[in-house]
Design a protein around this nucleic acid. Structure first.
Length: 257
DNA sequence: ATGACCGGTCGTACCGGA
């Protein structure tokens, strides 16, 4: 099974590129984030053979799951998901090909002194609590998406540039460790070029061309699935050219289990 | 060349992204 996750930064703006990418990449299951629409282009994606489950509430956020290996038991949001003040469209789960799949878009946090930062930490803690029963039951689980946290200093282009910023704090990283402590494994993808497994590069100032990026899009898999990972890589080709998202997709090949 | 912000919005600046 070929699984992918991609923050598309507006599925409306990215639709031609998304459709081309689906045709050439041929993923079986796709987790999307930042769809930024309440009206997902389901028909266009369905033409390529995918079932669609989308969760969007307007101009911000928005997540979706695409699958051609089944899409059952869809959940929009998770139990206990915090809001700001109301829950936002940041998580969607479904069972695809025998795997419980979640696509998540973790709150940005903005700055450390902003209420959105506490919201982000609360959100990650609540996600942990919501996933615990699935892992305890031994269900194959993968949580993919834009976590808005760089797990280590090696996951940002220059740690010194991030001192005092969100995405790299001990609290945020501890929230990721708490997820791993449930029995999840960080599937680190191959960069395909250069030493850094970055998945995001700011649009500004030629950051992509200088590989000044961050690894903030993550694939967290239960052990049985992590053991089935044949290859995982970052599709940096999708970050090139005219009209890309600022994030690149991650693609994971799972051998049959 | 991968080439130097972008998407969305009751907009024609500003917010959010990270």
């Amino acid at each position: 099974m070929r699984l992918a996750t991609w923050n598309v930064n507006s599925v409306t703006a990215r639709l031609p590129r998304l459709l081309d990418w689906l045709r050439t990449t041929g993923p079986d299951v796709v987790c999307l984030q930042e769809t930024k629409t309440a009206t997902f282009p389901e028909a266009e994606v369905a033409e390529l053979g995918y079932e669609v489950a989308a969760h969007g509430d307007g101009r911000w956020n928005g997540v979706a799951l695409l699958s051609r290996v089944g899409l059952a038991d869809v959940e929009r949001g998770f139990a206990g998901q915090p809001g700001f003040p109301d829950p936002e469209a940041r998580a969607i789960g479904a069972t695809c090909g025998g795997v419980r799949v979640w696509s998540v878009y973790v709150p940005n946090g903005r700055t450390i002194d902003d209420p959105h930062y506490a919201y982000k930490l609360n959100w990650l803690a609540a996600l942990r609590d919501a996933l615990a029963p699935t892992l305890a039951a031994g269900t194959p689980l993968v949580v993919c998406g834009d976590f808005n946290v760089a797990p280590t200093d090696s996951d940002v282009w220059d740690p010194a540039a991030f001192v005092g910023s969100t995405h790299v704090t001990a609290e945020e990283r501890a929230a990721l460790v708490a997820l791993l402590d449930l029995g999840l494994h960080d599937v680190v993808p191959e960069p395909m070029k250069g030493p850094n497994p970055f998945t995001y590069w700011d649009y500004r100032a030629g950051m992509f061309h200088k590989d000044m990026g961050m690894r903030i899009d993550l694939v967290y898999a239960s052990k049985d699935l992590a053991d089935r990972v044949g290859r995982a890589w970052i599709d940096r080709e999708a970050r090139k050219g005219k009209g890309p998202s600022d994030h690149a997709p991650i693609i994971v090949e799972l051998t049959s289990g």
